[in-house]
């Protein structure tokens, strides 16, 4: 349960991070106060997740924290890509090659 909560916190942090990027302001417009809120959540959520992981296992907490962070990052990126695609405004970007 604790680890699940840590997962949620990581996902929220990554989502806030992605929303704060300037390329997404047209897809997900937000007022200045929301920007501040997102910045706060982005900074605090991983710290809270670390505290939870350390509570779960003091010796291995950091490993859990890093592992969950990576997995949740991938999950969030896939979710955001699907969300953007649904809104029909996915920034395709120019082909890199």
């Amino acid at each position: 349960m604790i680890l699940l909560l840590a997962c949620v916190l990581w996902c929220v942090a990554f989502r806030c991070h992605e929303w704060l990027q300037s390329r997404n302001r047209t897809t997900f417009p937000m007022p200045v106060r929301a920007v501040w809120l997102n910045q706060g959540v982005r900074a605090l959520a991983p710290c809270l997740a670390l505290a939870l992981c350390l509570m779960h296992s003091p010796a291995l907490g950091v490993l859990f924290w890093l592992g969950l962070g990576s997995v949740c990052g991938v999950c969030t990126s896939v979710l955001m890509a699907v969300l953007k695609n649904k809104r029909g405004r996915a920034p395709a970007g120019k082909p890199p090659l």
């Binding site: 991070h17 992605e18 990052g73 969030t76 955001m80 890509a81 395709a92 970007g93």
Partner: peptide
């Protein structure tokens, strides 16, 4: 940092792979 979770699987194929 800005592209930490940026994934464009629905973009052009090379872009998606990168």
């Amino acid at each position: 940092w800005p592209d930490l979770v940026l994934l464009r699987p629905f973009g052009p194929r090379p872009r998606a792979w990168v």
